[in-house]
């Protein structure tokens, strides 16, 4: 049984079908990269997995449990799935540390003292120990995005979703964020990421899915998909993306 299974997921915004029957399996500890042009449905798919968007049809399973049942309380599911956004979305009125402490305290009901050592260790591990007490607007983009990752990790998620997390960064800051992902991969956390970083996807992903118009056109191991794409559309996209 896969960690996450998507079966025929359909998502529409009005007349606009953004996910058009998506099937996808993500195994425990696997890193899956979603690639494709803007508007292909990558971000929306991630938001559906996290139940930020209700789906029109199909089903999403987490550890075999259908989490897309209408009316299901999404909170418990979201607490198990971490998400990091393109624009960081840190809470500007809280310090980096308070950003990370909020959910463990509120959602899991832990006391500040209980959770503090673990969260401080997370900051230290990602080179943010001396930035912990800064506010988001005092941090660089790369630092903010690493704080956002720490904030998600503080909930000890079983799955992490990354939504184009390097797209808003200056090129020289992309590396420090991607390094964090490699660390997480080595720890065996299950990850799904939408990305335009083809080099990273090829190097780090276990599986790559190419999306177009809300469908998975082609999926496979990174080396195979990048070196021997089977579909003409994949070939055309890669030719443009890797130019």
């Amino acid at each position: 049984m896969a960690k996450i299974e998507l079966r025929g997921v359909v998502k529409r915004f009005g007349e606009n079908t953004v996910c058009d029957g998506i099937d996808l399996d993500v195994s425990e500890g696997e890193m899956v990269c979603l690639i494709g042009s803007s508007g292909a449905g990558k971000s929306t798919l991630l938001r559906c997995i996290n139940l930020l968007e209700p789906i029109e049809d199909g089903a999403i399973f987490l550890d075999g449990q259908d989490i897309s049942v209408p009316g299901l309380d999404p909170q418990a599911v979201r607490a198990r799935i971490g998400m990091v956004f393109q624009s960081f979305n840190l809470f500007p009125h809280k310090s980096a540390l308070e950003n990370a402490l909020l959910a463990p305290r509120r959602v899991r009901g832990q006391s500040r003292a209980d959770i503090l050592p673990e969260v401080e260790a997370l900051f230290a591990r990602f080179g943010l120990a001396d930035r912990m007490h800064n506010y988001p607007d005092q941090l660089s983009g790369g630092q903010q995005q690493r704080v956002a990752i720490v904030r998600a990790l503080a909930m000890r998620p079983e799955v992490m979703l990354f939504d184009e997390i390097t797209s808003a960064l200056d090129p020289q800051l992309v590396g420090e964020v991607l390094d964090v992902l490699l660390t997480l991969k080595s720890e065996g956390i299950t990850m799904v990421m939408a990305t335009h970083e083809m080099g990273f996807a090829r190097e780090a992903a276990d599986k790559v899915c190419f999306l177009k118009d809300g469908r998975i056109i082609e999926e496979g191991p990174a080396a195979k998909l990048f070196d021997h794409p089977q579909h003409a559309e994949t070939q055309a996209f890669l030719a443009r993306a890797l130019k």
Partner: peptide, 27 residues
């Protein structure tokens, strides 16, 4: 997007309002 980030952490609607939206709104 502030709401989305807070919800994605597992916060309830009420907590999102109380801990994330309202402090910024008041300011």
């Amino acid at each position: 997007s502030q709401r989305a980030a807070a919800l994605s952490l597992g916060l309830s609607e009420r907590q999102v309002m109380q801990d994330v939206v309202l402090p910024q709104a008041v300011r």
